[in-house]
Structures are given as C-alpha cells and as structure tokens.
Design a protein around this nucleic acid. Structure first.
Length: 618
DNA sequence: GCGCCATGAGGTACG
DNA sequence: CTCATGGCGC
C-alpha cells in the first residue's frame, strides 16, 4: 500500500487518505481524479479493512463505471487482495434500478417492471393524446415529453405541475403529465427519470428500506458531481445520511449538462448539508502542455458564476495554438486533412488514433466526413443511432418485454403493428409461455429464437437486400447479448440500462488504431488526444445561436470550450470559416468570442486576416 | 402492410 | 439542405 501511495502526488495522497466523514475533491481536467478514486477504494479496503461490498461508487456513464471497475480489480489483484468480493460500481440509474427491483414493492413497484426508453415514452405520450383528444399539431409529443422530463429532473410532481404550468405548452402538459404517469403505472413501466425519483420516494416512505441501504453502503463515492441534477443530489444525501462517509468529485469548469437538469451549484450546496466536509483540490495536470492549460484558463476565467481551478503542469511549455481562418467549411476540412498528413507523414510514433476533430453539433460532421473520405483518411464517428434504438432491435425487445410484463401496452401495441397474422401466431406462444412458466425455465436465447420462429419475424427481411441484411445482423448481435443474460428480466434490464454504441455498416471494419475520431465536444469529455482540432469557432455555431442571449447559457458554452481545449495533450488547432452553409443557407460568419478571449502570445495565426480578429472591426 | 409524398423542424445527450 | 414522421392511397 505504501508503494501505491507513493505513486500519488501530495494533493492526491491527502485526498485518498481522508476516509472518515464528508469530502469534496475539486479535480481539474487531467489531474488524475480517476486515479484518486480508485486508490481511495483500494485504501479503504486495504488499510481501513472495509468490506468491498460496503463501498459504493457512483458514476454517470456505463463506460466510466466499467473503467473504474476494471482499474479497481487490477489494483486489488496487484496488492494480493481477495478479488472475489468487489465494491459496487454503478451508474445512478443502474443502482436505482437494482434497488427498485429488489425493494420497490414497498411502494407498489412490482419486481418485473420494465424500463421505458425515449421511443416507449413517446408512444405512451401519444396514447395520452388519444385519450385527451389532443392533436399532435397542437403541441408536438416530443415537446410534451421534454417538458415532462424536465419537470421530473427538477422533481416537480404531476400534482405540483398544475400550479407550476405557465403558458400554452405547459398548460397542456399539465393535463398530459398525470395521465402519462397513470399509463406508466398501469403498464408496470418506469422511465429513466422515474428510476431516480421513485427510489427517492422509496427512501422517503420506507425508513426500513432506507436504513438497509445506508447500512449496506458505509462509504459512498460520487464522480462528476457538477453534473448531478436534484434527484441525484438527493439520492446521495439519502445514501450517505447515516455514516456520513461520502466523497464527491467534480469540477465546476466542466459542467456541460445543464440542459438536462444538471446543476453545478450542487457542488457547493453539498457543504450546507455536510458542513464538516473537507475540500481537496487537485490542480496539477498530467495531460497537456502549459500553453494549452494557459489557453484553457484564459477562456474559463471569463466565467464569473463559479470558482475556477488554475491548473499547472510539469509538462513542457509546448507549441503555440494554431488559429486558422478558412473561406468556408470545405476549406476548413481540407486544412485539417493537410495538418493531419503533415503530422503523420514523417512521424512514426504519431498515429491517426492520436487525432480528434471536435465540433459543437452533429450536423457539422457531414462536410468533415465528405472531405476525409475524399482524401482517404479513415475516421470513426462517435454518436448517431444507438443499437437499441434500431427498429428491428426494438421490435424483438418488445416481444420479450411483453412476455415478461404483460401489462406493457406499449410493447403490445408495437408488436400488433407488425402484422395481424404474426401477432396471432405469437399469441399462441405467449399462452404456452405463461402456462409453462418459461420466464423461469427457459433461457433468454431460447426464448428469442422461439419468438422469432413462431412470429415469423425474420421473414420481414430480405437477405438479398443490404439494408435488411444489416437488420438481420443486428438481431444476431442481440442474440449474442442474450447469451450473457440467460435470465429474461436481467436481460431486459441490461439492454435498457446499457446503451450499446452502434457501429454503422462501413465502420465495423475500421481499425481503431488507424483512424481519427470525429465527435461533439460533449462526447469528448473525459477523453484525451495528442492532437485536437476544434472546428466551427464562429458566433452562432460555437457559442451556439440559441445561447447567445442568455448569460448562463453562454457560460455553459464557455465551459464546453474549456472541456474541448483541455482534451489536447500536445497540439491544438482552432479553426473558423468566414462563410458556412447551415440548413442549406450560406451565411457569413464572425469568429467566435472564445478566440478573442485567448492571449495572443499563445497563438499562431495561419491564413488569418487579422483585421477580422480586431474586436473593433465588428 | 407498405411505399410514397408532404410537412416541418433542425443543440448538446447520459441512463 | 436533410432527416424523421405522419397521412393517405393502393
């Protein structure tokens, strides 16, 4: 253990060995916070003799949870610890799903509840429209769903919403919301927001249950605390309410999810609930050059609403940040190609996987893809349609979901739409399924195959057709997931909670090592690359047009810019175009204000008409 | 039950 | 401009 602590810097070490009572770790970008969290878990087990099952670590994404689990496991193994017992590492949603599955009956939630995703939610909303005789032309179901989800994110109940509702849309939503909740309850379904909120209800109404979990988790660690919403904030408060051993990690400057209810102020509010909380700061950066850190700091210092950590590094000063002005979005993409070629040509330890191109919105990827394709640079695109959102996958899942929970009218409706004949054949199977209790006796894979056979579902698709062939392959892929989860309910829970990234046709063959990455800056959070391009630095693109007139929205855009810049380890390129086509319209653009916020001494201008960069000019 | 056309909307996105 | 959705006709 001694050896392990030696590998940490003094700030990290102090944060790790604080184990009793509440702690806040303010961890800057690239400051080794995952390292600290993982070591803290190890320290608890190894030094403080805490049983692994009494430790809970909460993250936001499955990916983060997976990485954390892996690192803890290998660290435990390397220190000769028993690895048969592992701490709970979960996302808020998977944790809540597990708690509700086990203990939800205390508030009337049956064990076999299903989890509704966006599509299921929308179908349910549409059923509400039918009952209320509302027209989708009145307000769009998507808008209604967004409003409901946003209310739930703020923990506004359907009863409270009546008073809260103001204006045309919300007044309508006030009618839809309670009905929507009724339909979900009828269908034994919870949406993602409910997973959190119902768990809070459970803790509130069943002190016994609360005590059980408080007793189970002596130590609670929460990552990315700046991105918690009210529900998540309350949950952590409940969970740590007895032992008070809670450690939260976050960074104000990297809060980029307020549009989905996150509130970085939770990072401060924490102190009022846990007044004895000790604050640790990790400000040594191990990722970037000093120049990149200086640039990032110059930008984020324009935010006044939250504290900012000033990062420093032992890494070299590094090269200047390049600013490039392009005529239009095509030339911008061509410049990137040129720079990538320059970098990789004479440098054997520089591979395409070291490069990322980051943008504000997905629509920007198209031009980039076209040009990269044209010049033969392989790329992988992050984002797009999710595997479990694909029609064929949802269809099969609906059959299974309905078998597992026959209150699920949403799934029922979906499979009915797949054909009368198909449905009546399936119904025979369902009766068999119920009578012989297949959910207990048969494995998921068998059930899938039987459903496919009995419903003749696969006959919808023509193996000669390339698009259909992809669909058939996706169903095969689903079958292979089923092998991992022989229990049907567990299988369904896993597919609902674990969003599998879907690789479009042409991308499966791409060798990751030899491809650059295209993604939004949101998707890039937590990642790092030797060479980073941030493109479209124009007013209206970044910062985005819809944030230009709101002070706090602008600050969020700035944090996003900070996140983008701090992804770069060595080389950072910022580009903007004088003209850009958006929605088929060619518009003149002005350089982003974020460029003006950079100190000129860290910049290198390429092809830039510096009169454009004279603020007075605008 | 499927395919075609009109219509409309178009930020970012974890589970 | 492009994509998703919904209505309608066959």
């Amino acid at each position: 253990m001694e050896d392990i602590l030696k590998k940490l810097n003094s700030d990290q070490r102090e944060a790790v060995i604080h184990t009793a009572g509440p702690a806040i770790i303010l961890a800057g970008a690239g400051s080794g916070k995952t390292r600290v969290l993982v070591h803290k878990v190890l320290y608890l087990i190894h030094e403080k003799r805490v049983q692994p099952q009494n430790i809970l670590m909460v993250t936001f994404s499955n990916k983060a949870a997976g990485e954390m689990k892996e690192r803890i496991k290998s660290l435990l193994a390397s220190t000769n610890n028993d690895t048969s017992n592992n701490p709970t590492v979960a996302t808020f949603h998977s944790l809540c799903a597990r708690i509700l599955r086990k203990s939800g009956t205390a508030i009337g939630i049956p064990h076999n509840f299903v989890i509704y995703d966006k599509a299921d939610q929308l179908d349910t909303i549409k059923d509400c429209y039918e009952k209320l005789e509302l027209s989708i032309k009145d307000i769009r179901p998507k808008a209604a769903l967004d409003a409901i989800s946003s209310a739930k994110n703020q923990m506004i109940s359907e009863e409270q919403y009546l008073k809260y509702a103001k204006g045309y849309i919300q007044e309508r939503v006030a009618k839809i919301y309670p009905l929507y909740q009724n339909l979900l309850a009828e269908r034994n379904a919870l949406d993602f927001d409910d997973l959190l909120n119902k768990t809070i209800t459970l803790f509130r109404d069943s002190p016994k249950t609360l005590e059980y979990y408080q007793e189970l988790f002596h130590y609670v660690l929460v990552d990315e605390y700046q991105d918690t919403n009210i529900s998540q904030y309350r949950l952590t408060k409940y969970l740590a309410g007895k032992h008070n051993n809670i450690c939260i990690v976050g960074d104000f400057s990297q809060s980029i999810y307020s549009f989905r209810g996150a509130d970085y102020k939770n990072l401060e509010k924490f102190k009022t609930d846990f007044p004895t909380a000790k604050v640790y700061k990790l400000s040594q950066n191990y990722r970037s050059t000093q120049i990149i850190l200086d640039a990032a700091h110059a930008i984020i210092s324009n935010n006044n609403s939250h504290p900012v950590l000033k990062l420093w590094t032992d890494n070299k000063q590094g090269e200047e940040i390049s600013i490039y002005e392009a005529e239009n979005e095509h030339k911008e993409a061509e410049y990137i190609v040129k720079m990538i070629n320059n970098a990789t040509k004479n440098n054997s330890d520089f591979s395409l996987s070291d490069v990322a191109v980051l943008y504000r919105m997905n629509a920007q990827s198209r031009t980039l893809e076209e040009v990269l394709l044209h010049f033969g640079i392989p790329y992988k695109l992050v984002g797009g349609v999710r595997f479990y959102d694909r029609r064929e996958v949802k269809d099969v899942l609906s059959y299974l979901s309905y078998l597992s929970n026959q209150q699920d009218a949403t799934a029922l409706k979906r499979i009915q739409k797949l054909g009368k004949r198909r449905f009546s054949d399936f119904e025979f199977y369902r009766q068999e399924f119920n009578e012989a209790n297949y959910s207990e006796t048969k494995e998921t894979l068998t059930i899938i195959d039987e459903v496919l056979k009995r419903s003749s579902y696969l006959e919808r698709y023509d193996p000669e057709d390339s698009e259909d062939r992809t669909r058939l392959e996706n169903i095969k892929e689903l079958r292979s997931v089923a092998i991992e989860f022989p229990n049907l309910i567990q299988f369904l829970e896993n597919v609902a909670l674990v969003e599998q990234e879907y690789m479009p046709d042409g991308q499966k063959e791409i060798d990751d090592k030899n491809a650059i990455t295209l993604m939004t800056m949101h998707a890039a959070k937590g990642l790092e690359f030797k060479m980073v391009f941030i493109v479209g630095l124009e007013e209206g693109v970044f910062p985005h047009a819809q944030s230009l007139f709101d002070f706090s929205d602008l600050e969020e855009e700035r944090r996003l810019c900070y996140v983008g810049v701090t992804r770069a380890k060595e080389h950072l390129y910022l580009t903007y175009a004088k003209q850009r086509v958006i929605f088929g319209q060619r518009n003149a653009a002005t350089p982003s204000r974020f460029i003006f916020e950079l100190p000129t001494e860290v910049l290198e201008y390429n092809n830039v008409d510096t009169t454009l960069l004279n603020k007075e000019y605008w």
